[in-house]
């Protein structure tokens, strides 16, 4: 036997584990050994094919999870090998994710329900005040009831917007303003031929969390109510202007501007808004501070209140 053939024979022996035989049988042994190797290779190929199918199966489930679909399950063969462990792990993760999603949805529904109930309860309080006010004979007391009713409605509107919003933790304040003005028109029964409300609000949505939305809603209520009640006595004709938008405070800092002005008779000069007995004006100071804002009164042409407060990114 040539050296080359002998080398091949030795290599086959090493690969198959066959023991050396006589020279005469070596050729036969090489053929049998190669057949054995071929069989093994085919077996490995079959295994690879099976494993590749299992990997594909697991990958499909991962893709489903990435698409937030949790019903797909990877097949666990029962071999308790690495592929089974991967399949088991991915299945269990899917089940946990599904449970978390259900739990999150339940919480969201619950939160919506809470905002809805808060709004309903506030509306009930507002209606009760309304009913009770019908029996009041003293005009001053009636006013107080109405003011309280409007404040409650301003807060109820925030909760209404919250449960209607996609994100239950914030509302679009631009949208709030337009709903609020509809309510104010109904409430004060404003005659459009005499008093016109002009709204100039940024068209972009500006989202406020409840902590900002409630004080801003109350401030808006105080300012617009103030103009509606006092600016145009004795059927005077006039305008109420409402501006809401974002302006530059400094080069890198923006601020919200909420401005309510009217061309009415103006606040009497002797009233100092920082030292007043009026609950409405006291509230403006207090609520303005609560949101880190600055309230400025301009009396040059009617009344112009400008509230500026920092922009928070939500």
């Amino acid at each position: 036997m040539s050296d080359k053939l002998n080398d091949i024979y030795n290599a086959v022996c090493r690969l198959t584990g066959n023991k050396p035989v006589t020279d005469a049988d070596k050729k036969e042994a090489i053929i049998k050994g190669l057949e054995k190797i071929e069989k093994k290779l085919n077996q490995v190929k079959r295994e690879e094919k099976k494993n590749s199918k299992r990997i594909h199966d697991i990958l499909n489930v991962v893709v489903s999870l990435a698409n937030l679909r949790y019903d797909d399950k990877a097949n666990v063969s029962g071999k308790r090998d690495d592929f089974d462990a991967l399949a088991l792990g991915i299945n269990m993760l899917g089940e946990e994710l599904q449970a978390s999603t259900v739990s999150l949805n339940e919480k969201e529904i619950l939160l919506k329900e809470i905002h809805h109930r808060v709004k309903n309860n506030l509306q009930v309080i507002s209606s009760l005040l309304n009913l009770q006010s019908e029996k009041i004979m003293q005009p001053g007391l009636f006013e107080i009831f109405m003011e309280s009713k409007n404040r409650i409605r301003a807060m109820a509107l925030v909760h209404e917007k919250l449960y209607q919003s996609q994100n239950l933790s914030r509302i679009d304040f631009t949208d709030y303003i337009s709903s609020f003005l509809t309510y104010m028109n109904e409430c004060y029964n404003l005659n459009p031929e005499k008093i016109t409300i002009h709204l100039d609000a940024d068209k972009r949505p500006h989202y406020f969390k409840i902590d900002t939305a409630i004080p801003c809603g109350l401030i808006l209520n105080e300012l617009v109510s103030n103009s509606c009640k006092y600016a145009f006595p004795e059927d005077r004709i006039g305008n109420i202007y409402l501006y809401f938008g974002v302006e530059k405070y400094s080069e890198n800092v923006d601020q919200f501007i909420l401005q309510v002005s009217d061309d009415g008779i103006g606040i009497p000069a002797e009233i100092d808004i920082k030292k007043t007995d009026s609950l409405g004006l006291q509230l403006l100071e207090m609520l303005g501070c609560q949101i880190g804002g600055n309230l400025v009164l301009d009396r040059t042409n009617g009344t112009k209140f400008t509230l500026s407060f920092p922009v928070e990114k939500y």
């Binding site: 666990v76 090998d81 690495d82 089974d84 991967l86 088991l88 792990g89």
Partner: peptide
């Protein structure tokens, strides 16, 4: 010991 038991064991620890 087995890969499956490793996964399940870690699930108990983590989740």
């Amino acid at each position: 010991k087995s890969p499956s038991s490793r996964i399940i064991g870690n699930f108990f620890l983590g989740l």
